[in-house]
Every structure is written in C-alpha cells, then in structure tokens.
Design a protein around this nucleic acid. Structure first.
Length: 842
RNA sequence: AGCCGAUUAGCUCAGCGGAAGAGCGUCUGUUUUACAAACAGAAUGGCAAAGGUUCAAAUCCUUUAUCGGCGACCA
C-alpha cells in the first residue's frame, strides 16, 4: 500500500573497465589504446559494456529483487552526465574545485593518478634499507643517509637533519657533492627529521615523496622529476640512467655506490608499499598537475548533518557512525582527475596560453575565451564523482532540470544498502553533494552489510581462488535458500561462507513445500478465510493462531530495525517447529478425516445431521490450517519470493480479493497481499500456556519411550496425577496426546496408582507414569530419575542461594523475586515426587 | 598514530544486564500414508584471561592476550 521505489543501476567503473578493454585489445589485436585513438577506444568500451555490463543486473534479476527496471540508470547516461558537468562547473565557480601541482599517487601501469582511497597499502617483508654515503664538498667527511628507494637519489635536492641533532649541527648549511650527478645539494635543518631514526640524516627528493615535497617548499628547494609516466627514468636522471625501469635503475645506483665505495651497508627491512587497488602495481609518488576538490566545506556539510540530525543513521550504528565521522574529520582534498579515456571528460578548455575555461559546453567555453582555438582537458573525472550524485541525478536532477515528480516523491530516499568498503568512497560523498546541490540528505538510513568471506574465513579473492559464485549457489540450492542464508546472517557482521548453511535453508524450503502439499491434499471444502482465525475453538487452534500473530508482530519489529536475521530465525522456527512439528501433527486426524472417515462412510447414505456436523467441523479445520499457511507464506514472501508465490497460487480460493485494497483490480499475486502485521487480539497467552502443558506432557512421554526403548508399535497407557485444571486440559486434548505419544489410554487422577514396574517423569504441573510390566530395567529407571532430580536440584540450590541473599530480595524488582520464589516452589514439588518414586524403587 | 571490531557447544554463528541458544556435525531409535533433504529422543559450554561495577554480568567498565578491519610519510 505504500509508494516505494527500488532504483537500481551501475556506475561506469572507469579504471577497471578501461583495464579490461585495454587487455582485450592487446590480446586480440596487439594494440594499445594510443594505437587506436581516443574515439575508437571509447567506442570499444561501449561495445564491451553492451556485452558484459548487464552481468550485474542479470544477477539482481535472478535474485528476485523487486526493482523498478524502467528506472534503471547508468552514470554515463546523458542526463546523469549533464548533472556531472553542472556540478563540476558550479564547484569550480564557487572555488571548491581547483587545479594544482601536488604529489599524487601514480599508477605506472594504468598511467593515471589515483585518489588516496584507491591506494592499497601492502607490507613487503623482504624490503631493504640502503645506507648511502654522500661526500661533503671541500671535506673528507661523508654523511650517511638511509633509503628504501636508492634510485630516487638522482632527484635529491638536499639532505635534512634535525636542528637539535648535535652530530650534524656543524654540517648544516654546508654543501654535498651528490654522487652520480654533477649537482651540489645543501644540508638543511628541519623538525620533520627524527634524530633517532636511521642515521638521523634524510635525503630529500621533493618531486618523489610527499614529505620531501613539503619540506622542499619550506626550504625553497628545487623539484627534480626524474621519472616518466611508466616509471622509467627520464633525462633528468642522467644519460646513464635514462630509459631504465625504476627497479633496474635501483640496482644500478646501488652498484655504482658500491664501486665508489660509498655503499655503507644494506639491511633487511620490512616496508609498507602503496599498490594500485585495481592492478596491484606498486605506485609511485609523483609531482603532477591535477584537479582537486577542496573538502573543507564539503566535510562540514556532512558533519553538521550528523551533529544536528544524526543522519544518516547507520545500521549497525556501532562502529560505522564513528568510522564515518572520524574519516570526515581528517579529510584531505580529493583528487578527481584521472588520466583515462573512459568516463566524464573534464569540462575545462585551455587556450594556447594555457588559460583555463571551465564551462558546461564547448560553446560556452568558446564564448568565455572569445576564440574557438581551445583544447579540452584530456582527463576524465573519478568515477565516484558521478556516483556521488546518484541519489538525485537518477531521479532526474541535472542542473537544467532541478525539480521532478520523482525527486519530490522519493528524495531523500529511505535507505541505502551497501558495504563498508565504500562508506568513504561513496556514502560520504553522496551525503556531501546531495546536501550541497539539493539541500537535503540523500538517504535517511544506511545499512552496512557484512562481507561474505570465503570458506577459509578469508576475504574472497581471485588470487586465493576462494570465491563463491552466487549463480552456482542459485543453481545448486535455489535462490530462495540463498536469500535466506544472506538475510539470516547478522546485519553488518562478516561471515564465512558455508554450503551447509544454504543447504539447511534448502531443506527449509523443502519443508514448506511438503507442508503445503499436505494441506492441499486435504483442502477439499476449504478456503483462505481470515475469519477462521478469530473463531478458533480448541486449545491447539488458539495456540497456533496466537503464535502466528506473535511471530508476525516480532517479524515486523525486526524488519523495522533492519534485524533481518532475527526475522529469518522467527519465521524458520515458527514454521518448522510450531506449525509443522506440532500444529500439523495435532490436527492431522481432524484435517485428513481419519477421525471421522468411518463415520462419514457409514452415514453417507442418509443426510443425517451428524454427517453435516462432522463435515462442517472438518471444513472449518481445513480452512483454518490453509489460512494459517497462507499468512505464513505472506510473512515468508520477502525472503523466499519464488517458492511462496508458487505455493500461494495453488491455495484454494486464491484471488485478488486477498490483495491490499490498492491492488484489488490486479492479477492475483502474493506480492500484492498485505504483509501481516499481527493482531494483538489474537494473541492468547492462556492458550499458549495451556498448550505448553500438553506439549511438555507429550515430550516427557516420548522421552520415556526413547530411553526405555519402547517399540514404536507398543502403545502403553499413560497415568497422570495433576490438579483439576491440568487434568481438564489433558482430557480436552486426549486424542492428540494419545496420537503423538503413541499411547492407547489416559488415566487421569489426583494421585498415581501404578505398578512398581513403571517409568516416571514430572512436568511443572503433572506426575507421569508409564507402566511397563516386565520390560522395565530398574537400574536404568533409577538413573533416569536421579538425573532428572539432579538437574532440578542444581537449579533449585542456585535460586535458593539468591533468595537467601538479603540484598537481592531487597533490591531486585519484586516481580523478579516472586518469579524465583514460584520457580523454587515448582521445583520442590517436582523433586519431592521424583524422590518418592526413587524410594519406591529401592 | 592510532581508532574500531571479534574471541560463546566439534564447526559456522546468534544472544549483549535477570534460568546458556540455533544450524550443521555427533550418538540412539524409526520406511508413523506431507516431508529420510525427514521424524522422535540424547550428549556436548570454566561465554579468551584477570580485575572491577551491580542484588544480579556472556552481556557494562578497566587491563592483558590472540585474530581481523580501517587508518598512519617514520626516511
């Protein structure tokens, strides 16, 4: 009955996609992207996308997701691209976007810059630390620096020491003759250097290290870039090194130092290296001119939203709210340009003089520049820049159009379901840009799913080969079972994949199928009818109706707080334990006619009143069980859509009359029926308590049967001693007790009167005895009774000690104290009975 | 320059202030006409360790250990 929208779509995954097509091009045609050119290359990417891009949405369809496919979007759709240009230009005009030289993360393989979030730090255990000696000018002295990247010494423009370091104080201001180059570089003093680390002297390479860059600015040092974009050395490195790969150059530099007698030592050293998240290549910090977003105001938009509204609300709140806020607080500027061809080309144009014109279209840029002799920036934007606009760009906002019916209806959206790895990359940026451009949050809630780990408990990865393909799981166990498995894992918690888990939900699906089959086999004269739940007469009927409604309420509550796993557990146990194992068995005779069939056969000839009464009773029972089943299917439907729809359609008298009022005219489907809310008026605590008494009795008798090895075919008489109330309940349910306990008679009374050769048990309200004639093994029976008594006594002594604690009695809530007193009394009665029985046996 | 998690039955995990739970596995029975992918019954826990708070702690606090995630320029 609510207006809802699940909008699905995909981003263009700039780097990954370009990488795929680049590989394909190289493999099939032995060409690089430059060989085919920008236009042809992007054409190939669109072709690739057409072929493979639907894989994800195909999987989502197969999952049975309730998506509005008519609104599917792609980040490079025309309107979404228009939005990207609009946002870029606006931010530039307002001074939030700028272009500048910075040390950036450079991937020499993909030949593009990466944002800090796309960098994966990995520890290299077999790294080396090289100690190089630099000779001082006009002196025999040398100063030793330690480095993990000796080749960068070719770009050194200083050596720095700590100003308080006594060892080097005299050297500050002196010059060094930098080996392998003909350059002289100064020794400078800076607080950045830690005297205790390494030799206390640091080589400074401003063009190849972020810290050195900063230090270089402070001391006005030259920046010498010695590398090409593929991490080979350029002419600045000297003729001897030009063209060499960075690692070859490293070896060569070390060799040369050794020849010169300037290599002091090499130590083993564990080093942390930045890698490209996509292609795993070791990144190179490089001085480069890029586009950036200044995040200081953006950050405040997001932080204020959290401070004032607590939005977005994360589930689970711990730890993600803090993770999110802490990250925002320490936010640095965002590098948004990428040296790729696949993506949104930056709407900036340059004239011959290098002046920049940022505009929504080329025409606008020409107007600004007063000339058409402009060249558009070749770079594209970070994919996440367009994804950041997703919440509103997909609903029609593109700068030109800023108000749409969809935006009014669906924005802010209710919930974003995502993984923790993109909280910074995506979630935070959507919040910032939505606040900035539509003036409201993109979503109220964010659900962070756990990560599904491989069978080995490790993150899935192609390298480890521990991945699980969902499509294979669908084929093997069914989509519904897979959905139950995923929904059944706690929100936000990681879990190791186990086929066994899906298998158990596959079994559950099978259970639902079989239970429905049973109901349908006995559905003649029945129909789905809500009224049948309101006029339940027997204890068993009232009990199951109560359990159903209680479950429905609890499921609704769990879903309201995104506790999907709790809803799954509730439904699993209600359906399997309560409905199948107890209710179906309790009413089986009534439903199948077993109890009445003879009667009906006999009286079929004449239309006697008895015949009608019996048939009417049977139809009532059938209608009731079908109705309970129908409600259960509705509750299960969001989790197991395929199975429940299939079975629901088979139920008697199914029609669109069962739909929510809004959909009465539509074709009958469980999807359009109301989700049961649970009716408090149908919750009957008394019936549940009374049914529990019957269940306890049956369980105890079954326990005796199993432990005393009574053959299934043997049907004993059950003797029960209980008060009048309990005996009334047993009498009312005699038929069910006899059937489920496989007994042939019930003897009810206030006291037991049975032969010594009887097996005994106690429940909270009754003493039970099953006479076994010659079959009983007294030793075994004594052990059984001792065991029962022992357990109860342990519990009683623990509770008694609580009661004897004055503090507990005084300070705990009175009802808690009373509860424990009642329980102790209950146990004492049971133990007394068991002890008397034991005495009688000895 | 840390910040978070996690540690509960053989395994995978719920529970997060008032009697230790589930699924799988294990053991015993059972071709009971919805279901052997099932049914009935059973066994199995110093809730990581040590302190503390509380009438009451698996649950809250502190410290420690081990594992994991995110972050971090120590050359």
């Amino acid at each position: 009955g609510f207006k809802t929208l699940w909008l699905v779509g995909v981003d263009h995954a700039g780097i990954s996609t370009q990488l795929q097509v680049t590989k394909k091009l190289l493999k099939e045609e032995k060409k690089t992207r430059w060989d085919v050119g920008r236009e042809e290359f992007t054409k190939r990417v669109w072709e690739w996308k057409a072929q493979y891009g639907h894989e994800i949405t195909r999987q989502i369809r197969r999952e049975g997701a309730s998506v509005d496919w008519s609104r599917e979007r792609f980040t490079m759709d025309e309107s979404l691209s228009r939005a990207v240009r609009e946002v870029f230009v606006t931010l530039f005009e307002e001074g939030w976007i700028y272009r500048g030289f910075r040390i950036v993360n450079w991937c020499p393989k993909d030949k593009t810059v990466l944002s800090d979030l796309e960098v994966k730090e990995e520890t290299k255990k077999d790294g080396k630390l090289y100690f190089l000696q630099y000779p001082l000018k006009n002196s025999d002295k040398k100063i030793t620096v330690a480095t993990t990247r000796p080749e960068t010494m070719l770009g050194d423009t200083a050596v720095a020491v700590n100003p308080t370091d006594e060892r080097y104080r005299d050297l500050v201001g002196q010059m060094i003759e930098l080996p392998l180059t003909n350059r002289e570089i100064p020794i400078v003093a800076d607080d950045y250097v830690e005297a205790q680390f390494g030799t206390g002297a640091v080589k400074i390479t401003p063009a190849h290290d972020p810290n050195d860059y900063e230090l270089g600015l402070r001391h006005d040092l030259p920046q010498i870039n010695i590398m090409n974009d593929d991490a080979t050395l350029n002419p600045e490195a000297g003729a001897e090194f030009e063209g060499l790969d960075r690692y070859i150059a490293r070896e060569k530099v070390v060799e040369k130092f050794e020849e010169l007698g300037l290599l002091e030592k090499i130590e083993d050293y564990e080093i942390v290296l930045p890698h490209c998240e996509r292609c795993q290549t070791v990144l190179e910090p490089l001085l480069s001119e890029q586009w950036f977003v200044n995040m200081s105001e953006m950050r405040d938009l997001a932080l204020n939203l959290m401070r004032t509204e607590g939005a977005p609300h994360f589930s689970p709140r711990v730890p993600y709210e803090k993770v999110y806020t802490t990250w925002l607080e320490n936010l640095k500027d965002w590098t948004i340009s990428r040296q790729l061809w696949w993506g949104h080309q930056i709407p900036a144009w340059y004239d011959a003089g290098g002046n920049v014109f940022v505009a929504r279209t080329a025409a606008e840029a020409f107007d600004q520049a007063g000339t058409k002799d402009l060249r558009q920036d070749e770079d594209v934007l970070d994919t996440w820049f367009s994804s950041a606009l997703w919440s509103f760009s997909t609903l029609g906002w593109n700068g030109e159009i800023t108000e749409t019916e969809d935006l009014k209806t669906f924005h802010p959206t209710d919930v974003l379901v995502t993984g923790r790895d993109i909280i910074f990359l995506w979630v935070s940026r959507m919040v910032m840009l939505s606040e900035k451009f539509v003036g409201e949050k993109p979503f109220k809630d964010v659900i962070i799913n756990g990560t599904v780990l491989g069978k080995d408990g490790q993150r899935m990865s192609k390298l480890k080969g521990n991945g699980v393909n969902p499509l294979d799981v669908f084929d093997k166990f069914g989509v519904d079972a897979t959905r139950m498995t995923l929904a059944g894992s706690a929100t936000g918690a990681d879990f190791a994949w186990r086929d066994e888990k899906v298998e158990s939900y596959r079994n559950f699906a099978n259970k639902i199928w079989n239970a429905t089959r049973f109901c349908l086999m006995n559905s003649e004269g029945a129909q789905v009818d809500g009224a049948s739940l309101k006029n339940a007469a027997s204890i068993a009927d009232k009990w199951i109706v109560s359990r159903l409604n209680k479950t429905a309420q609890a499921v609704n509550k769990a879903l309201g707080t995104y506790q999907f796993h709790e809803a799954v557990q509730l439904l699993y146990h209600f359906f399997w334990d309560d409905f199948c194992d107890w209710y179906i068995e309790l009413v089986k005779d009534e439903i199948t006619g077993g109890k009445y069939s003879e009667l009906i056969e006999d009286e079929r000839e004449d239309d006697s009143l008895a015949d009608f009464t019996v048939l009417a009773k049977q139809n009532d029972a059938r209608t009731r069980i079908i109705t309970i089943l129908e409600q259960s299917l509705r509750l299960l439907h969001p989790f197991m859509p395929f199975l429940t729809e299939e079975l629901w359609q088979k139920l008697p008298a199914i029609s669109s009359n069962l739909h929510n009022a809004a959909y009465k005219s539509a074709e009958a489907s469980i999807m359009l029926a109301d989700f049961p809310a649970g009716d408090s008026n149908l919750i009957d605590e008394r019936a549940e308590a009374e049914m529990q008494i019957v269940i306890d009795l049956i369980s105890k008798v079954r326990n005796i049967r199993a432990e005393m090895q009574i053959k299934p075919a043997d049907k004993p008489v059950i003797h029960i001693a209980a008060n009048a109330d309990a005996n009334r309940i047993f009498a009312e349910n005699e038929a069910q007790i006899l059937k489920l306990a496989r007994a042939e008679g019930l003897v009810l009374g206030a006291k037991l009167d049975v032969p010594k050769a009887s097996a005994k048990a106690v429940t909270t309200v009754a003493e039970i005895a099953v006479p076994l004639e010659g079959l009983i093994d007294f030793e075994k029976e004594i052990a059984r009774l001792e065991n029962q008594a022992g357990k109860l006594e342990t519990e009683a002594s623990r509770l008694s000690s609580q009661l004897s604690n004055a503090n507990f009695v005084d300070r705990a809530p009175a009802e808690k104290v009373q509860e424990i007193r009642d329980r102790v009394a209950e146990i004492e009665t049971q133990v007394t009975a068991l002890r008397q029985n034991l005495e009688a046996l000895k």
